[in-house]
């Protein structure tokens, strides 16, 4: 991707965020009990400023030479994009399953999966996953008294 395209896209994105936020702010009360600058004041002001910055980025992008490529972008590297998608999905799955299945099961599975995916040997994988799961449990639940969901194993705790 060229730098010009990247800046244009991200600038337009900021403008879109600003428009949505400014519109949403109009549903807030403008003043409560004769307050100057009521609840809608700050969101409106800030989203307007954000929109101006977005426009500034888009405008400035036009002066970037068309040939200038964005550093760190490569069209051919599919493998990298897949790695990111897999890790992101693993985190999303962790967040979703934490409550129903419980901390111990989900954490162990999460670590085993990621270590396997990142090509760590099975022996090391299982040892790290087991130690990390048990020791974080000991630290957070037993020592720091944090309540973590136990899910399926709730009965035993």
């Amino acid at each position: 991707m060229t730098e010009r395209t990247a800046d244009t896209i991200s600038g337009l994105f900021l403008i879109a965020v600003a428009l949505v936020a400014a519109a949403a702010a109009q549903f807030l009360p403008t003043t409560i009990a004769k307050e100057f600058a009521g609840p809608s004041f700050m969101p409106t002001l800030v989203s307007m400023a954000l929109g101006i910055c977005g426009a500034g980025i888009v405008f400035k992008a036009r002066s970037i030479p068309q040939t200038q490529r964005m550093p760190g972008w490569s069209e051919t590297d599919r493998a990298g994009a897949i790695r990111i998608a897999v890790v992101a999905l693993a985190i999303a799955a962790y967040n979703l399953l934490l409550e129903p299945l419980g901390y111990l099961i989900v954490t162990f599975a999460f670590l085993v999966f990621l270590l396997w995916y990142l090509k760590v040997s099975w022996f090391l994988n299982l040892i790290i996953s087991l130690i990390a799961t048990v020791s974080t449990y000991a630290m957070f639940v037993i020592w720091l008294k944090v309540v973590l969901p136990m899910g399926l194993l709730e009965f035993y705790f």
């Binding site: 890790v87 985190i91 954490t107 999460f110 670590l111 990621l114 270590l115 990142l118 090509k119 760590v120 090391l124 790290i128 990390a132 974080t136």
Partner: peptide, 11 residues
């Protein structure tokens, strides 16, 4: 190795 660190940092 970084692959060992990544899952632990994520956790």
């Amino acid at each position: 190795p970084y692959p060992v660190l990544i899952p632990i940092i994520l956790l």
